[in-house]
Nucleic acid binder design. Sequence first.
DNA 1: CTGGTTCTACTACCAGACTC
DNA 2: GAGTCTGGTAGTAGAACCAG
Length: 302
Amino acid sequence: MHVDMNLLTALDALLEERSVSAAAARLHLSQPAMSRTLGRIRDATGDPILVRTGRTMTLTPRALALRQEVHALVQRAHAVFAPERALDLEKLERTFTVRCHDALTTALGTRLLFAVQEQAPHVKLRLLAEPAGDTDELRHGRVDLEIGATEPALPEIRGESIGEDRLVVAVRQGHPLARGRLTARRYAEALHVTVSRRGRLRDRIDDALESQGLRRRVVAAAPTTAAAAHFARESDLVVALPARVCGPMLRALHLSALPLPLDVPEVRIVQLWHQRFESDKAHAWLRGLTREIVQAICRGEA
DNA sequence: CTGGTTCTACTACCAGACTC
DNA sequence: GAGTCTGGTAGTAGAACCAG
């Protein structure tokens, strides 16, 4: 039996995109050409693979079962045709799009830029802010690396925990909370700002307070840690921020960092990338740099 | 509810490349 | 040169969305 490897590549794109049009765009084909290829895949497998459900397409059980295996086969085939070459950072010309939580952009941005410039002078970084809603930009290749607190949500997204940070209470200098021991009750009585790009007025601190029978008054949600920190500097508002990551910003704004009088788990810092970059040496080099820098920040070496 | 618009997939038909 | 395969354009159909 003749096996067309191009069908395997097309099947991989179709299974991942769950859309004939998107798979066509990925493989630089026209949509009808991909539709015909899907037809050939259907003939070859004897399964519809993608079935129409309204405006979108849904994978059949057979397609779901094949997904991982097909992807692994395509990756291995690409590895065969892409001969092993050493990564030459001196000559590497590439632009990486990195999406970061705003506090992380501030904390690691300068060190990352210097490290990249020193090791790979022709590499450029495009640093993006986190969007308000969930997007598939890693999947669609519009973002190469994402660093934040979000765990991978899709099977094709790889994730790596690169650090942990504890929350502290940021207040202006001379704030009443800074005098005497900060108890959970005194903390709860203050006026609070949360940091949420989605505008959430509630976070895990509220859960921790409620477990002690306490409630706090959140007056606003700030879109970024920088905005929240400015609110705290210019008022009696208090905001909980990751200590190490926000350390330089807190110092620059002359904010005091008080220990959070609650039992709240540390904030995990995670980097995410699409599995197609798994064996990309340049991407792995960038991941290594961000990992080193974030780990140094979390050890307090910043 | 209805008709127009938009999105998505499919089919028909044609052209170019390749094989025998 | 005929046959086959693949991909292109043009057009069609089904479903969802939206304004009135």
